[in-house]
Nucleic acid binder design. Structure first.
Length: 376
DNA sequence: GAGGCGTGGAG
DNA sequence: TCTCCAAGCCT
């Protein structure tokens, strides 16, 4: 890898910040340096693209304008505000941290990266981003952009998928951060990483810091950063149970221990709990249904008789799982009480008011299409 | 330290 | 349809 002299570092800062002053993006959370604004935006931006975040950020600030308002928000309101943004534990951690700030810190924010990390959901990157942008601490904010940009500029060979590599990059970047404008420096690196120095289809030849780009100079841009790949998502087959009664549809709230915690969906039964999940033969489905009828009647006190909706399973892919949901429909003429089951009957018109994950929207869309087709 | 945790866009 | 990627954190 390359190393830079003091003169090179100063020239780099100047080139970077001159470009940033002219071409830096005007984003809603850049209108001031309020730590609440910086913090909420940084949490939303974790693993999420800027264009996706903007409308969520604006709605969130309208709904929860202060850290106190966020601390007092109801969980359904919070989850509804986060619906569709993904990584839903971020929302819960955000409110937990808001309550820490109000209750434990009396709304006096920690001002250093080290102390900010004591708040829920704030790790090394987010702590450094807030500390530098809101409070002017001279620390590098080492995110995916910083990894990629400096790996290319300096031809750093360390595998950025390895957690220990963060320390190396932090030590390399620390003396490069502009001590006069650390927050702008970090944001400029991010803008660079999302424009000229993107992961794919980058344009290093026109970058404002191309003179400092060792990988471009040597024609090895595509070799950086070094990053080992993650395994493919695992197939997880489910039955999705569309059960409707005079009082509405049966929806269940996912538990704290499950993914999509707190969000509502049709009951989902892992096919693994029934028959061979790999088998798709009609006979297997029939056997499954018999089991399902029995179990549903016994466990949940609901006399449901399920019929396959047909068509391809609803498919939804997460980072680590690929769900294939076979939809089954049961129509009940009376509404059974839900004595032992953690769900509720929801009138069709009221479902959209609940916090719903994407896979539930897909299942509802499929069911609506089928009903529309049946009317033809 | 490896794996869990969502969604949408680009090619 | 499939693959990879996008301002990570938690356990």
């Amino acid at each position: 890898m390359e190393t830079w002299s003091t003169a090179t570092i100063q020239a780099f800062r100047h080139a970077l910040l001159t470009w940033y002053d002219q071409e830096g993006r005007d984003l809603p959370w850049r209108h001031d340096h309020d730590p609440y604004h910086v913090w909420v935006s940084e949490i939303m931006l974790q693993q999420t693209q800027v264009n996706t975040v903007i409308p969520y950020y604006q709605r969130f600030m309208a709904a929860f304008p202060t850290v106190t308002a966020l601390a007092r928000a109801s969980e359904p309101d919070l989850l509804k505000a986060w619906q569709g943004l993904g990584y839903y534990s971020r929302a819960r951690n955000l409110q937990r941290a808001a309550r820490q700030i109000v209750d434990d810190y009396h709304e006096e924010w920690p001002r250093t990266a080290a102390s900010l990390q004591d708040l829920s959901g704030i790790g090394p990157y987010t702590a450094s981003a807030i500390a530098s942008i809101a409070f002017g601490q001279v620390v590098p904010a080492v995110d995916g952009n910083a990894f990629r940009v400096f790996a290319r500029l300096l031809k750093i060979d360390a595998d950025i998928a390895q957690p220990k590599t963060r320390q190396l990059f932090t030590e390399i970047i620390q003396p490069i951060v502009d001590p006069q404008r650390p927050g702008d420096f970090n944001q400029a690196i991010m803008d660079l990483g999302s424009s000229y120095m993107t992961a794919q289809k980058s344009d290093p030849a026109h970058s404002p810091v191309r003179a400092f780009d060792a990988s471009w100079r040597t024609g090895t841009v595509d070799q950086y950063p070094v990053k080992t790949k993650k395994p493919r998502p695992k197939l997880v087959p489910y039955y999705g149970l569309i059960i409707h009664a005079p009082a509405g549809y049966l929806l269940v709230q996912r538990t704290r221990q499950q993914m999509l915690a707190g969000y509502w969906s049709y009951p989902l039964v892992p096919q693994a709990e029934l028959q061979d999940p790999e088998a798709t033969a009609p006979a297997t489905l029939t056997a499954d249904l018999a089991t399902l009828h029995q179990r549903w009647a016994a466990d949940y006190q609901i006399p449901a008789t399920f019929a396959p909706l047909g068509g391809a399973p609803v498919s939804h892919t997460y980072t680590h799982q690929r769900w294939q949901v076979k939809l089954l429909v049961a129509t009940l003429t009376k509404t059974p009480p839900l004595t032992f089951y953690p769900g509720k009957w929801v009138p069709a018109a009221e479902i959209a008011a609940l916090p719903l994950p994407k896979v539930q929207e897909k299942m509802m869309t499929r069911w609506a299409q089928r009903q529309a087709a049946a009317k033809q």
